[in-house]
Amino acid sequence: MLEIHWGLPVIIYLFLGGLGAGAGVVSASVFLRSHAGDASEGAFDIARWGALIAPIPVIVGVGALVFELGSFAVGDMFRWINLFLTINLSPMSIGSWLLALFVIVSLVYAYTFLGSNSRPGDEHHGLRKKMAWLMVPLGVGVALYTGILLGAMPSRPFWNSPILAMLFLISALSTGVASILLMRCIFGGSSSDAKGVEDSKYLLSSTDMLLISFEVLVVFLFIMYAHLTVGGVEHAIDVVLGGSLTSLFWLGFVVIGLIIPILIELKYVLPRLLKQEHYAMPHAMELAVCMLVIVGGFMLRYVVVIAGQVTGPIGI
């Protein structure tokens, strides 16, 4: 086994950064799509929860990253500032700037939703709308660049796939949706507008279902193309096709994070989708789906980060 240079801090960051960015993107796009929250109270509520969640995991994740730096380990607390004294085409350089912008914008965006009496058309309305327009590209950028960062190196054949960034983006959006649903599940009080609540819950669950089905497809493409090549990439993918990370990948990520949640969601979403019946997912099921999706998102980052490092180029 080769050395693991990037450990738990990087895995935690990839997971939390994706989750926060995903929550921010979902919040901002739901907000913009519902005519800045005017269309329904439920949509504004989704946007509010997403906005309040977004900056926290990203900031915690970036904080964790600092602990992986060699300069920090020798007691040089602030050498990482060098990242922001330059900009180049390294995915990490572009990613650092994106992250910095995302943190600032998401904090301002969250600020416009603070206060229990925030509602569509209040005094922060204009600022909120401007920030929402910025949140979408910045959030997609943050979610996407991590996959590009890992994928940029021929020396890491497991990571060196253009579809890895897509997988990370979809997983980020999916965990973002799950985190919003989870927060609403735990803290969301009763609303007078029962129809609006049902609509918004249905919107989130069906979106999550769609995202997970895309994720299943992307995972299939990722594995299939790697397996069909010869050489380093095929050798590397063997680590999840019979190698040391097989059970973690298939049980921890595919079954727990994708298959079980999508089956549960299908059971409750399909009746409304096909037969226009009422959408009513039990509270406990909602909680379970969210937790499974979030655990699956973590497992994906864990397996990918470790698998990329225990495999390498073959031959000399």
């Binding site: 240079h5 990037w6 992986e68 730096l69 060699g70 300069s71 920090f72 380990a73 020798v74 050498r79 990482w80 060098n82 990242l83 390294s90 990490m92 960062l149 940029a152 190196m153 021929p154 020396s155 890491r156 990329g308 490092q309 390498g312 180029p313």
Partner: peptide, 19 residues
């Protein structure tokens, strides 16, 4: 200038870099 992010250690196909 190096902050020790170890990105280059992954990028080197020859494993020539160390922290």
């Amino acid at each position: 200038i190096c902050i020790g992010c170890k990105y280059c250690m992954h990028a080197c196909p020859y494993g020539m870099r160390y922290l």
